[in-house]
């Protein structure tokens, strides 16, 4: 019987030698399913293959590996392959590791692809803040908050929609941000030009109010 590492080498080799689009997707799925940290470099490389099916499978693999994939993903962002960058941002947003904060801030503010800004905006609200040292949480959340409020003015409706989703999550995580978020959401309900964004902001407000009132009940 092969050792785990030898088995992994076989799976990696299968990705590298697959010679059809469908074959690559299958090989990547198998490698992702192995859920092994040594698969990270290959999975990241797949993000740059310009094969959406394979990229989805590789992203799933990286997300299920979680924190262990984060340093390599952050390094990958320096590369020149734009498609790979988009998938890497997506993976970072889904892993929710707060080491990605700066990259998500930069992306939500300035990336030219709306699908990438969209993923970054949602990710900024849903970072796992408990992984940060206690003393760093407040400043990190403040930066996410400022960026998300700016992102509420993005020209693309779906990015503003994602900012609303991010703000709802951030308000639940940070009591000190909740008031400013509530005010920004109210403005979005009243003034956004797209009905879907107005509705999502209303849903966020409803959820936050509900959460607030259940909180009060448990205190009583």
């Amino acid at each position: 019987m092969a050792s785990p590492s030898a088995e992994l080498a076989v799976l990696i080799k299968a990705v590298e030698t697959a010679d059809s689009k469908a074959g690559i997707v299958q090989a990547v799925r198998a490698l992702s399913a192995a859920n092994h940290p040594e698969a990270v470099p290959t999975l990241i490389e797949v993000l740059g293959y310009n094969n959406p099916g394979a990229a989805v499978a590789a992203t799933e693999g990286l997300v299920s590996l979680g924190a262990v994939a984060v340093p390599a993903l952050l390094e990958q962002l320096d590369g020149h392959n734009y498609g790979a960058r988009a998938w890497a941002i997506r993976a970072l947003a889904l892993i929710q590791d707060p080491r990605a904060l700066n990259v998500l801030v930069e992306t939500a503010r300035g990336d030219f692809a709306l699908s990438v800004r969209r993923a970054a905006a949602k990710g900024l609200g849903t970072l796992n803040w408990s992984k940060l040292p206690k003393a760093a949480v407040e400043a990190a959340q403040a930066e996410a908050l400022t960026t998300l409020i700016e992102t509420l003015a993005d020209p693309e409706w779906v990015v503003r929609y994602a900012a609303v989703v991010g703000l709802q999550a951030l308000a639940l995580a940070s009591a000190s941000a909740a008031d400013r978020i509530g005010a920004a959401l109210e403005t979005a309900v009243e003034q956004d030009l797209v009905l879907a964004v107005q509705a999502r902001a209303q849903m966020a407000l409803d959820n936050l109010n509900e959460n607030c009132s259940t909180g009060m009940e448990t205190q009583e």
Binding site: W157, Q198, A199
Partner: peptide, 14 residues
């Protein structure tokens, strides 16, 4: 978004 906005208009949101 299309589904949602049709529905929102039909129910007169906001």
């Amino acid at each position: 978004q299309g589904l949602l906005e049709h529905h929102l208009q039909a129910m007169d949101f906001p």
